Simulated scan of single mutants.
Amino acid sequence: MRIVRTIGVVAAIFCALASGAMAQTVQAGFNDEDITWVDFQNGLERARSECKPVFVLFHTDWCPHCKRYRAAFKEPSIVELSKDFVFVIVDRDHEEAINDRYAPEGGYVPRSVMLNGAGVLQTQISGPRTDYKYFLDPDNYRELEGFLTRAKAEFDPAHCDFKPV
Rank of each mutant, 00 (worst) to 15 (best):
L44M: 12
W62G: 06
R92V: 13
D93M: 09
S77V: 15
E145M: 09
A11Q: 08
V113E: 05
T36N: 10
P128S: 10
F155H: 03
R48H: 11
I78A: 00
L17E: 08
Q24F: 05
V56G: 01
Y102T: 05
P76T: 01
Q41M: 12
P157F: 11
T149K: 02
E105N: 00
D131C: 09
V90I: 05
P157V: 09
S82E: 05
H94K: 15
L115P: 01
N42D: 15
L115M: 01
G107A: 14
R142H: 11
V109C: 02
V79C: 04
L148R: 03
L148Y: 05
W62S: 05
D100G: 09
R48S: 13
D100E: 14
R5Q: 14
I35Q: 08
R46P: 04
D93G: 12
S112L: 07
D137W: 01
V26G: 00
G117W: 01
F58N: 02
L148T: 06
G29D: 11
Q122I: 11
S19I: 14
E95W: 09
R150F: 06
N140V: 13
L136I: 09
G20L: 14
Q122D: 06
L44F: 06
P104A: 03
V26T: 07
R5M: 15
R2M: 13
E33M: 12
Y134A: 10
K133W: 04
E145W: 08
K74E: 15
K74S: 15
E33C: 08
T149S: 10
T6N: 11
A72E: 10
H159W: 09
N116M: 04
E95K: 03
V79W: 02
